[in-house]
């Protein structure tokens, strides 16, 4: 049954991907991207990756669609009928696909417990998580503590991308500074009863879900990356319904910039505090008298840092696009 469902989802995904590339109207392509993201998220769930499915659903189907649409509203919706040498590209792409498909026969059997992925590092992580930090979610343990350096780096990449977008879009001819904001940005969809009522009902629960996922990430699927994306999605929904200016009144840009930088500083700061207390950089064991409690405290704090940075960056990016003059 699961096999059939998996094949069904993947086939739909391929059909959607072809439709995305063929669509002349970019609006259609972006909407289909949302569907593709949802299909990928469902496939991740079938592959036991609950945390990843949650992230893909929040980021791919939610935030990414909004960003592409706001970029389209500034540029243009229609793709001119032209492509460079489609036949040559098609030949290259088909040849490459055949090579990759051919190499698939040499890959380890799907689900093989003896495959290299499962026989080197993973058993160690699965075994030691209980010993070192006593939290049920191994993904959070690996993300926050065992591979904390990687995650720190990734948080800074997200921060750097956010700073880049702010730099790119806060100058040039299209920078309106709020003077010539279009009517929808001021009033949003407030005149439409059904989206407004439905949105008002949904937003508090989306925020609550985001906070639950943030602070329950050690025990169930979740963590800072997912929570950040979900909270950002809730605020973006509010901005679409009530107008961008209203959303900026609740969370002004200086606050968002503070969240962006503050989260990254919190993460790095926890590492430095660990050093000051006599441990290594990002070693949380020294944060409390009991090393296990210290690990748990450290993971909770750095996840909060990750959540702050992701929320701040995604919302700053959204507002940068929304503030451009058309």
């Amino acid at each position: 049954m699961t096999v059939l469902l998996g094949i069904f989802l993947l086939t739909l995904l391929l059909i959607t991907a072809v439709a995305i590339v063929r669509a002349r109207n970019l609006f259609v392509a972006v909407m289909l991207m949302g569907i593709a993201s949802l299909l990928i998220a469902a496939s991740f769930l079938l592959l036991d990756a609950a945390d990843v499915a949650l992230t893909e659903a929040a980021v791919g189907a939610g935030v990414s669609t909004v960003l592409f649409l706001s970029a389209l509203s500034i540029t243009s919706e229609r793709e001119r009928a032209s492509s460079s040498r489609p036949l040559v590209s098609l030949v290259v792409v088909t040849a490459a696909a055949l090579i990759v498909i051919d190499s698939a026969f040499d890959k380890p059997r799907f689900g093989d417990p003896e495959a290299p992925v499962h026989s080197h590092l993973s058993p160690w992580y699965i075994e030691k998580t209980q010993e070192h930090m006593e939290i049920p979610n191994i993904v959070t343990a690996v993300l926050g503590s065992f591979r904390g350096y990687d995650t720190l780096g990734e948080v800074f990449v997200v921060l750097a991308a956010g700073i880049g977008v702010l730099f790119l879009l806060s100058s040039g001819p299209g920078f309106g500074g709020g003077k010539s904001t279009p009517p929808w940005a001021q009033a949003g969809l407030r005149h439409y009863l059904i989206p407004r009522v439905a949105g008002r009902l949904l937003i508090p629960f989306i925020l609550l879900l985001g906070l639950y996922i943030q602070f329950h990430g050690e025990y169930g699927p979740g963590g800072g990356f997912q929570a950040g994306a979900i909270i950002a999605a809730a605020v973006i929904l509010y901005a679409l319904l009530e107008g961008e200016q209203h959303a900026l009144k609740i969370l002004p840009q200086p606050v968002l910039t503070g969240l962006m930088a503050g989260g990254a500083i919190l993460y790095g700061g926890i590492g430095v505090i660990g050093m000051l207390l006599g441990g290594n950089f990002l070693d949380y064991s020294v944060l409390a008298a009991d090393p296990v409690k210290g690990q748990q405290r450290g993971i909770l704090l750095i996840e909060a840092g990750v959540g702050m940075t992701v929320t701040g960056v995604l919302l700053s990016i959204f507002h940068s696009f929304a503030a451009r003059r058309r």
Partner: peptide, 10 residues
């Protein structure tokens, strides 16, 4: 992949 998704959207 979890972190790559968020880095990817940024």
């Amino acid at each position: 992949i979890l972190t790559a998704i968020v880095v990817g959207i940024s």
